[in-house]
């Protein structure tokens, strides 16, 4: 197996995730796309761990999974709060920072 086949898979998924984050209107879908990006990074962690024969790669993949879980929890709570206050979760509706 080539090292690159895993890395390229990760890169493709990451870019798809970037597209999702930038293009989707629904805030929940934005969060899902962020999960996709985090998973793309995880693949790199694990495959480099295998490549260098260290266990740290897997350990950090696990840490990323934990951080992602925390991120989803807080992120969804924020989305719920937005929905409750503005009755909308369309990210394009929120432009309070407009200059």
């Amino acid at each position: 197996m080539l090292l690159n086949q895993f890395l390229i898979l990760g890169a493709v998924l990451f870019c798809i995730g970037v597209y999702g984050v930038l293009a989707r209107k629904n805030a929940v879908m934005v969060l899902m796309s962020i999960e996709l990006m985090l998973n793309a990074v995880n693949i790199n962690m694990v495959v480099f761990g295998v490549q260098h024969e260290v266990v740290s790669g897997q350990v950090f993949a696990l840490f990323i999974i934990a951080v992602a879980a925390a991120e989803v929890g807080v992120g969804l709570a924020i989305v719920l709060l937005l929905y409750r206050n503005q009755t909308s979760i369309d990210v394009e509706d929120f432009d309070l920072m407009k200059g």
Binding site: C15, I16, V18, Y19, L22, A23, R24, K25, V91, E92
Partner: peptide, 12 residues
């Protein structure tokens, strides 16, 4: 999908 999806696609 928002109106700016072509920009997003370009960036990605």
């Amino acid at each position: 999908t928002g109106t700016q999806w072509p920009i997003a696609a370009g960036v990605a």
